[in-house]
């Protein structure tokens, strides 16, 4: 018998992220399959879009409110969510596999004596067993994992599960609990934003450039295409190591794992470590002059030709289509 399920929703500067809604939606769906119900919790100060949570099928939306917890504190968030989970008997906690979720989930699992499985891309019920599927070995293999303990903490890879509004959306009850006396053993004192750029880990569309770009001076072609598409700029490790692009743009095994709706790879060969970070994208477009480049084994659409000719044409065509 599974008791209640709790989705832990992440926000950035008071706005719940899309991955948070995905967690709420999956928690509600799993609860239905297990004949129980799900709640959602948000920790922070003011949360602007908290009312939106109710449409994803959870019963209660719990806001643990404290101005000192407006920013993430690993010790603080662990403490208040642990207390809530213990008091209200949640058996399964669902988080997103973001920087925050990855940091927090394992800590909660120890406090709750729960098994912890991260970066899940599929949830299946086999009888009453919950089987979690996740990529390993840089996406070269998938494992199915069963958590043996009654309590479970799991994280979902962002953008793999869709946040879907519940059919019979009874409006969730909003419960605000003021929290005090939290022990902030570690806290975030400031945030250094990478200037004016969208992060690849959160973008819905990514345009990435590799060594085929020939030099940093040509990346304006990538930036222009990204702008036309409303996309973030990504890079292969070869160009990050060469100092052409910053490390926070690197996609792959030693960079970021992304699963956008559209990934456009320009002048990237598609080495296994690069594919590890992006092969779960919904649609992949490759532009590469080598028709045997491994990137074409994962691409949905490809053009085998000179990117210096193709990318500017693509940028123009996208602009045209968007205007019409």
């Amino acid at each position: 018998m599974v008791n209640k399920i709790l989705a832990v929703l992440e926000h950035r500067e008071g706005t719940i992220k899309r991955s948070g809604f995905e967690a709420a939606s999956i928690a509600a769906k799993l609860a239905k399959d297990l004949n129980t119900f799900a709640d959602a919790v948000v920790v922070g100060d003011a949360i602007s879009n908290i009312n939106e949570v109710s449409k994803y099928g959870v019963q209660k939306v719990i806001h643990l409110k404290n101005s000192e917890l407006a920013n993430y504190s690993s010790s603080g968030y662990t403490e208040v969510i642990t207390n809530l989970a213990k008091e209200s008997n949640y058996d399964i906690l669902i988080l997103s596999n973001t920087s925050l979720g990855k940091d927090l989930a394992p800590r909660l699992s120890i406090k709750l004596e729960a098994g912890c499985v991260v970066d899940c891309v599929k949830l299946n019920l086999s009888g009453s067993d919950l089987i979690l599927t996740r990529p390993t070995y840089a996406g070269k293999a998938l494992i199915d994992v069963k958590i043996l303990s009654d309590k479970k903490v799991i994280t979902l890879r962002p953008n793999v599960f869709k946040a879907m509004a519940a059919e019979n959306s009874a409006v969730a009850e909003l419960v605000v609990k003021e929290i005090s006396g939290v022990n902030l053993r570690s806290k975030v004192t400031s945030f250094k934003k990478s200037v004016g750029k969208m992060d690849v880990a959160e973008a819905d569309i990514i345009v990435s450039g590799g060594r085929g770009m020939k030099g940093p001076e040509n990346f304006h072609l990538i930036e222009e295409l990204a702008e036309a598409l409303g996309a973030a700029v990504g890079a292969s490790r070869a160009v990050v190591d060469a100092g052409w692009r910053p490390h926070n743009e690197q996609v792959g095994q030693t960079g970021k794992t992304v699963s956008p709706t559209l990934y456009v790879a320009c002048g990237i060969s598609g080495a296994i470590q690069h594919l590890a970070g992006m092969s779960s994208s919904k649609y992949i477009v490759a532009v590469n002059k080598d028709k045997d480049a491994p990137i074409f084994t994962v691409a949905d659409y490809g053009i085998t030709g000179d990117l210096f000719e193709i990318i500017p044409a693509l940028t123009n065509e996208i602009k045209k289509v968007k205007q019409s």
């Binding site: 293999a141 053009i303 996208i318």
Partner: peptide, 30 residues
């Protein structure tokens, strides 16, 4: 606390479509 019950290689993707080999393929790609 957890147990691996199975390991599989990801299903190979269907080979994608090569739309063309130069800029003339761009409108079709879009």
């Amino acid at each position: 606390k957890s147990e691996v019950v199975g390991m599989n290689l990801p299903a190979g993707k269907q080979p994608g479509r090569i739309v063309g080999s130069d800029a003339s393929a761009v409108p079709e790609l879009v």
